[in-house]
Computed example of a mutant assay.
Amino acid sequence: MHFRDVKGNKYNFVETLIGKGKTDVVEVMKAYIDINLNGIMRVDYIPTLEGDAEFYPGCSYLGRIYRIGHIK
């Protein structure tokens, strides 16, 4: 699954850093634990942070580290 946070709605949205959008990511993680989810989780597209570089569009180095840290 791709783990991400967004602002907006399903028709018009932008990706945000985890915890900066409209999703209660702690409650999402608790729900995954409650259903004994057993799968692969990865970060999704990542906003580029100031001073960062993208190694391809939507995937920046610092943004990726930030998201992985929040998931952990």
Rank of each mutant, 00 (worst) to 15 (best):
E15A: 10
Y61E: 01
E15K: 08
R4N: 13
I33P: 05
S60Y: 03
N36I: 07
L37I: 04
V14E: 11
R4D: 12
F3L: 14
H2F: 10
P47N: 01
I18W: 03
Y66N: 11
Y66V: 06
K22I: 13
D44R: 06
I18T: 01
D5M: 11
Y11S: 14
I18Y: 01
V6W: 08
D24I: 06
G19R: 07
F55L: 15
V43Q: 08
K30P: 13
L62Q: 10
D34C: 11
P47L: 06
G69F: 03
Y61V: 03
L49Q: 06
N38I: 10
Y61R: 07
R67P: 04
K72C: 09
I35Q: 13
N38H: 10
N36Y: 11
I40Q: 07
K20F: 09
R67C: 12
T48V: 14
I18A: 05
K10F: 12
D34R: 15
L17E: 04
G8C: 14
S60M: 10
L37E: 04
N38C: 13
E54M: 13
G51E: 04
K20W: 05
H2W: 09
H70I: 07
N38L: 15
V28A: 11
Y61Q: 01
H2Y: 07
P47M: 09
P57M: 10
N12Q: 13
I65F: 02
Y45K: 12
F13I: 07
I68Y: 00
Y45C: 12
I18D: 02
L62F: 04
L62H: 03
R4Y: 11
Y61S: 01
A53V: 07
K7S: 14
M29Q: 05
D52T: 01
I65T: 00
I40C: 12
E15H: 02
E15F: 10
C59G: 02
L17M: 11
N9D: 15
M29F: 08
M1V: 02
I33K: 14
H2S: 13
I33R: 15
K30S: 12
Y32I: 08
P57Q: 08
Y45T: 06
K10V: 10
M29S: 06
M41H: 00
V43E: 04
G39A: 12
C59H: 03
D5R: 08
M41P: 00
N38G: 08
A31W: 05
F13V: 04
T23G: 06
L49F: 01
K30A: 12
F55M: 15
E50V: 03
P57I: 05
F55K: 10
T48E: 13
L49V: 00
H70N: 08
